[in-house]
């Protein structure tokens, strides 16, 4: 019954939307020249990174907040800590385990490279963090890393530390420079690298946590 309403409405909407898109004149404003002009004082050489971490750094700050929030949400949803907490690692294929051990150091190096490359090429904290998280998931799936339980103090600091560092830099700049996230051009590069390094670690932990906390809640890795 619902189908009879939704599907024709959807078809009609998409048709109208596509016709309108095809007709559209070029926009009145073009931000590309502005992005390029200010690149020199942004502290990074890659335009997308400049937008993410300088021009629209506030969006990025909130976005990391959203990610941290999702992690807390998962912890809040997945119930009280289990009493049966002894997680035994499933004995996995020795070949898998060996490949996992070989991949681990390489992936760490890749993550560091991505972090460093982010200033001038595609890359940065998110990509590096994602590689670290993938590493954790890989180790988990090969049976080398147990699923996570309710986090302890150190893990909690690791999860929220990068975000808090970003916040503190923002707050400090607000006190010193008088504006939120206004990097002094001379120090923009260093500050951005500092923030990115902290974020890489925390984002890696958060993204890994999104998988590993969920993976634990049925008693051990599967």
């Amino acid at each position: 019954m619902k189908r009879l309403v939704v599907i024709p409405a959807a078809l009609f909407f998409v048709l109208v939307l596509i016709l309108a898109l095809v007709d559209l004149a070029p926009p009145a404003f073009d931000l590309r020249p502005l992005v390029a002009e200010n690149l020199a004082s942004s502290g990074v050489a890659h335009p997308v990174t400049a937008v993410l971490l300088n021009y629209r750094a506030y969006d990025t700050l909130l976005e990391i907040g959203v990610l941290l929030l999702a992690l807390m949400a998962i912890l809040a949803v997945s119930g009280s800590p289990r009493t049966t907490s002894n997680t035994s690692l499933s004995a996995s294929d020795p070949l898998l385990a060996m490949l996992g051990r070989i991949a681990a150091p390489v992936m760490v190096v890749v993550a560091v490279y991505l972090l460093w490359a982010g200033t001038s090429r595609p890359g940065g904290a998110f990509q590096a963090g994602a590689v670290l998280a993938a590493l954790a998931v890989l180790l988990h799936l090969t049976g080398l890393l147990a699923g996570w339980q309710q986090p302890g103090v150190r893990l909690r600091w690791g999860l929220a530390g990068g975000f808090l560092l970003f916040l503190s830099v923002g707050a400090l700049l607000l006190l010193v420079e008088g504006e939120l996230l206004r990097y002094p051009p001379a120090h923009a590069g260093v500050l951005i690298l500092l923030i990115e390094s902290g974020l890489t670690l925390s984002l890696g932990l958060i993204l890994a946590g999104l998988f590993l906390f969920l993976s634990h809640d049925q008693g051990g890795p599967r």
């Binding site: 420079e177 504006e179 939120l180 996230l181 990097y183």
Partner: peptide
Amino acid sequence: GLAVGGWGAPLGI
């Protein structure tokens, strides 16, 4: 009003 990061619209927020 305030321009976050000192850029101001339309480039900044």
